[in-house]
């Protein structure tokens, strides 16, 4: 479905996904709007060494394809399989990832080029050019959950993995 573009300046220039999803779910007939995580302040950790000496870890919300290499998990009960956090080798970067169940803009773009959301090769190039110490031998995946409690538990798992891998800084890339 498409709509007429509004006149320039009539809307704020970046999209509000909180507004869009609330309006869509209202149209679907859901009684209550989703309550997004809302915080007034944020924690802040300082770098402990220069980036050129730091190891970076990447966190993604995409998932590894199944063992058989298939990317399409279909729409049946299989898709409800328990999604757990995972750590996977970053070199070589995976050729494809499973993203179909995530709500990215499937009309405007595609996810065939994994570097558009899992920039392992780009980071490696920047490390080779001296901007960065190294890329962690593993990258880390977290499932997207409506339950913020469950995500906080997954975050502790990711923290344990980045410590195991001596990661100094983390880049997180949502789809």
């Amino acid at each position: 479905m498409t709509a007429e573009a509004p006149p320039p300046g009539a809307h704020r220039n970046f999209v509000s996904y909180i507004d869009k999803s609330r309006e869509l779910y209202e149209a679907y007939g859901y009684d209550q709007a989703y309550r997004w995580a809302t915080n007034a302040t944020a924690p802040f950790a300082e770098l402990t060494k220069p980036l050129a000496e730091s190891r970076i870890g990447v966190v993604t919300t995409s998932f590894l394809p199944r063992n058989d290499g298939s990317l399409d998990t279909g729409d049946g009960p299989d898709l409800v399989l328990a999604k757990e956090p995972y750590a996977a080798p970053s070199d070589p970067a995976p050729e494809a990832m499973f993203t179909q169940d995530l709500s990215w803009d499937k009309e405007a773009t595609h996810t065939h080029d994994t570097e558009t959301y899992l920039p392992l090769a780009r980071l490696r190039e920047l490390a080779e050019a001296g901007h960065l110490g190294s890329v962690s031998p593993r990258f880390y995946g977290v499932p997207t959950e409506y339950s913020q409690r469950r995500t906080r538990a997954d975050a502790a798992t990711v923290e344990a993995w980045v410590r195991e891998d001596d990661v100094d800084v983390v880049m997180l890339v949502p789809l």
Partner: peptide
């Protein structure tokens, strides 16, 4: 996805 990585 954006909320998930923000919490992590």
């Amino acid at each position: 996805c954006h909320q998930t990585v923000s919490l992590v």
